[in-house]
Write a protein that binds this DNA or RNA. Structure first.
Lengths: 336, 336
DNA sequence: CTGAAAGCGCTTACAG
DNA sequence: CTGAAAGCGCTTACAG
């Protein structure tokens, strides 16, 4: 015994007006006499009517839906960022398809196509794999707003929101070098912008400070944002620390990697930070859960999310171009 | 210069057949001559056509969308569970609206309504606040499959997937009591089933073992799944441990709470586990990040997700009722 | 096996 | 300020 959802026709019938007028009351986009507005509103309330969002979307109007593409939900960095986006969406009666790519570019492409088929009003993509999906974003950015968070600037019509990862990375390296470290390892994931830019800065700052870049100190793991990242990082660093006993510090591209490195150091009975200093990136809550607590670079994830969401809302509603946003980072020194 | 998305009409025109026949090829639900099928498929490929999902949904067909309602994305328990769901959805060409309620029942209601307006094919709700949203689920469960994970069995037409939280909680208490603990504190969140059931077991097992239930050892925090949970738990336990110096163990309703308690103990210079044993729940990755590593009850989150997703898929496609699923839990003793 | 037609629930010119 | 009509892109009886 399924009670069919009420439609605009029901409201029209009950109120005695046409569906056109009901629609106008619903959307408030055309003048309607006050008294009829009241009557129609009463009918809407009485029937507990809410419009079918698919029908709206079909005729080319807004679907009140955006797509969010993330590498993973297993790194709290993304959780907090999404929380920021979500808060803004909620205020605007928007809902999101959250699509996790598991850092797989084929899946990322599939998600993009899927979102287009669903006529989302826009897409926010976080740390995308633009090396291979760039042309996809380029393509759809001509038909809907696309916002790239912490990604490569290769898409002409895309909009960008980033934290200043270059500055953040530079702070880490300068801090470590100022402390006297010379043998600084670097731990990164596969070939995406967020890691590439950090490696670039790593190389640059070392060179600037007259320290030779030792390629064997640059370690790379496969998946940077999954639950396995911690253990993979641990194994990688275990190996590296055994082979190269003169390493005294590590710059890890995110907190999961940093935790893995910390676990490796503990297992090797190294004193942290005395024997081995570790600095991560993102400043997720994980940093305050480890013992000793992790130093990291704060990216103000929530603000990143809020900024992106506000931007996409204004692009959808007014096609206003707000320019690029770059948010500040801050090095947070804790116990590692 | 926006290139309009191809429609079924374009395919019909190019192939020389009617849109009806194209539709049949697309859906494979009616006989079509092989040769025409080939021609139409060529046209589809050539135009890179994919059907508009909104149009499909509008006429009452499936939307290939389900809604997932979670209390939060900031507890990795939910991330891992969603990962399980997601894997199955992907195989079935489904996409999810992931809706976080922030443990707020008003928002939960809003999400439910929204999902209905979007004509999702079904809803999976994780640890819902059925105390106040129960009638909503009851209501929509008459028009689409609703799966409740780890929730109250108050909805007649809902389907249930749960881990055996009762057994898990019992294991914890029995383990602690067997170890000689008498003053066991209990830390929980607000009034939802997952916490209520654990408290019920806490009381039952203590009584069974002849230990008087001391109400002042039962502590309650507000938000159990947010980033603030850790600190709130810490403050709560700091206070409790100072007031009641004879407490020797804690059963915390999830890992975030357990970490908070651990932080409190560390701050009070208590030895863990010698002075104070802590057992959490969920066995999220956080357990292996703390020092000492956290003991916890494993709920095989991913399996919980996979099972729920498979169940909803079969309900959507065949209206098969698969019965209730209860998954086993396992007490994992680490260093706390 | 195939096509023409109706209809899903809306919005938006077009008239008035 | 209001209504009748067209149309969004599909699927599904209904004929043939």
């Amino acid at each position: 015994m399924f009670i069919k959802k009420k439609t605009i026709v029901d409201v029209a019938r009950l109120s005695g007006f046409s569906i056109s007028t009901v629609s106008r009351v619903l959307n408030g986009n055309y003048p309607v006499k006050h008294s009829t507005k009241v009557i129609i509103q009463e009918a809407i309330d009485l029937l507990n009517f809410s419009p079918n969002i698919l029908a709206r979307g079909l005729i080319g109007a807004k679907t009140f839906t955006i797509g969010i593409i993330v590498p993973s939900l297993e790194n709290l960095f993304f959780s907090e960022l999404i929380r920021g986006i979500d808060d803004v969406l909620l205020d605007n009666n928007y809902t999101a398809f959250i699509c996790s790519t598991n850092e797989d570019d084929l899946l990322e492409k599939k998600h993009i196509t899927n979102l287009v088929d669903r006529k989302v009003d826009g897409i926010i993509s976080i740390s995308p794999n633009t090396m291979s999906t760039g042309s996809y974003y380029e393509n759809i950015s001509r038909s809907m707003p696309v916002i790239i968070i912490n990604g490569e600037h290769e898409c002409e019509d895309c909009h960008f929101v980033s934290s200043d990862q270059e500055a953040g990375a530079a702070q880490v390296l300068e801090y470590l070098i100022a402390e006297g470290h010379q043998k600084i390892a670097f731990l990164r994931g596969h070939d995406i912008y967020a890691y590439n830019i950090k490696e670039k800065i790593y190389r640059r700052i070392l060179q600037e400070k007259g320290i030779e870049v030792d390629e064997s100190l640059i370690a790379r793991i496969s998946a940077g944002n999954s639950l396995s990242t911690v253990d993979e990082s641990k194994e990688k660093m275990l190996k590296l620390l055994k082979e190269r006993k003169n390493i005294t510090a590590l710059f890890a591209c995110n907190d999961l990697m940093a935790v893995g490195a910390l676990n490796a150091a503990v297992q090797l009975n190294m004193k942290v930070p005395e024997d081995f200093r570790i600095i991560g990136f993102d400043n997720t809550i994980i940093c305050s859960l480890t013992q000793p607590t992790l130093s990291s670079v704060d990216q103000s994830m929530k603000l990143l999310g809020v900024t992106s969401a506000k931007k996409i809302m204004s692009l959808i509603n007014e096609t206003t171009y707000l320019g690029e946003s770059i948010l500040e980072t801050a090095l947070i020194i804790r116990k590692t």
